[in-house]
């Protein structure tokens, strides 16, 4: 690891001032992703601004929904009684991610900001447009079992690795960000971006901005399932994952939320499938049709071709499980 400076600002304002002053600086909180990337030489910030002790850990209900501080630990959110009862999808997704130890370190903000786990991104001797723009995409014609089937470009077929973000996308969460001039809100679905011609940019957060909280609106999605399919039973990134949440009244889906992980550069919302299911009976047959709609336009790159079929099976299974039919 290169030598770097480390500061621990006493408050949010000091932190925002510090980052505004120094473009090469990065915030660090849990460190589970950033320290890893620094060890591998993938990123080499000259300065770390440790925000771990800022008072942004609170989880509280407000009239706008559930506010979760950006520094709340993944484990604390997963264990939270309100989250477990009213936002179970989020709790399930968090438990599906990483390990108990990592969840005790990783923060909500850091989870949102985590980088792809693409092996070509991680190996600094390999080409990767995300790490080194213009160097090419190693995965495109390389080993791409873990890679995207939706929304990729010739420049990058990496996927966003988070489970939590898939649930937050489905739950229509909003991200609250601040800089030293003020505050703004970003709808979750607009936070992460597709690679296009600029895979080096993961998201729409601007320089000098800090995620301070997420807000999840209240919902009536009493049936939910986060299904994660991976190469071993636990402690592995998703091949595909599905966040499915349903509000069912009189046997019909009144509200439905569907999103996938492990399939795109961002948490992948299945809006067409949602539209199809809305108002229809919550039956396995309809779920299967929704799954077929969801995978329209999916594209494999060789090793990951199987993900298309797997995605369809996983969507059906997750909906079945959510609706209590599996």
């Amino acid at each position: 690891m290169i030598p770097f400076e480390y500061i621990r600002p006493s408050g949010q304002k000091a932190a925002l001032d510090a980052i505004a002053k120094d473009a090469s600086a990065q915030f660090i909180a849990g460190g589970t992703n950033l320290v890893d990337l620094m060890k591998k030489g993938v990123v080499s910030p000259q300065k770390l601004i440790d925000i771990g002790k800022l008072p942004l850990k609170e989880i509280k209900e407000a009239n706008t929904g559930l506010h979760i501080g950006a520094l709340a630990l993944n484990s604390d959110v997963a264990e939270n009684e309100i989250v477990k009862t009213k936002y179970s999808l989020l709790s399930q997704a968090l438990y599906a991610g990483a390990s108990a130890q990592l969840r005790n370190m990783a923060t909500v903000g850091g989870n949102i900001m985590q980088r792809t786990r693409c092996t070509y991104f991680y190996d600094t001797t390999m080409p990767c447009n995300k790490r080194k723009p213009g160097s090419g995409c190693g995965a495109l014609k390389g080993y791409n079992r873990m890679h995207a089937i939706f929304g990729a470009s010739e420049n990058c077929i990496a996927v966003h690795p988070s489970d939590m973000c898939v649930a937050l996308t489905a739950l229509n969460a909003t991200i609250l960000v601040s800089n030293n001039k003020g505050e703004r809100k970003i709808p979750f679905g607009e936070f992460h971006r597709l690679p296009g011609d600029h895979p080096e940019t993961d998201n729409t957060l601007q320089k000098g901005e800090l995620i301070t909280a997420i807000i999840i609106p209240e919902n009536n999605l009493q049936h939910s399932c986060y299904l994660k399919i991976r190469d071993r039973a636990s402690y592995a990134f998703a091949l595909v994952s599905v966040a499915a949440a349903l509000e069912i009244a009189d046997g019909k889906t009144k509200d439905v939320r569907l999103a996938m992980g492990g399939v795109a550069h961002k948490p992948w919302r299945l809006t067409d499938a949602e539209k199809f299911l809305k108002g229809k009976p919550a039956t396995e047959n309809n779920f299967q049709q929704a799954a077929q709609i969801a995978i329209k336009g999916a594209k494999g790159y060789g090793n990951n071709n199987f993900k298309i079929k797997l995605a369809s099976a996983a969507i059906t299974e997750a909906l079945n499980k959510a609706a209590g039919k599996a």
Binding site: R117, T119, R232, A233, S234, Y235, A236, F237
Partner: peptide, 10 residues
């Protein structure tokens, strides 16, 4: 993380 040896849950 990428070379999967069995974990407890397996």
């Amino acid at each position: 993380a990428d070379y999967h040896v069995p974990v407890n849950a397996d």
